[in-house]
Amino acid sequence: MKTTSIMIVGVGGQGSLLASKLLGQLLVDEGYDVKVSEVHGMSQRGGSVVTYVRYGDKVYSPIVTEGEADYIISFEKLEAARYAAFLKTDGQMVVNTQEIDPMPVIIGAATYPTDVLGELKAKGLKIDDFDALTPAVEAGSSKAVNIVLMGRFAKYVNIPYERWIAAIEKAVKPKFVEMNKRAFELGYHS
């Protein structure tokens, strides 16, 4: 099997590490060779963060480069645009429509693009955009955006629903399992 490349992009603090932990655990359980590359340290302080997940029969590089991503899961619209060049020509994006102003926008040195996803779609990128924040809040926490997105993304990969739930039970602290299962369900059925 060819290596599949996934990128999880967002803003530091949005919970991309948990999303990649869940995905990594799931893919190991499915019997794949897996590599996950995370970001720690300074970038986590509200900066743009990217995590790479790759799986297949044998995976060498832990990172994904331009034109290689089969899937990009973006926690935020601007970040989807930032990493658009990484998407394969037939790749798929799953995007949370949340907007988080970066500091250059906050201080007025730049403006947040008005129709950033529309422009990408016009260029021919396959984008599945939806509001992940509302279902996250419905599940119990705005922080569950990460798992809502995983639920939405799960529709694109051929892994049964119960396996995802089993991976959530392994990857998440016991007291947050129920909330995250609910968040996943809401994302999956959105």
Partner: peptide, 17 residues
């Protein structure tokens, strides 16, 4: 080299803060 549909992504930077 793998091809990209969207080669340029000129969006505002997001430095850590």
């Amino acid at each position: 080299i793998p091809a990209s549909i969207c080669a340029d992504s000129a969006v505002p930077g997001r430095p850590p803060m």
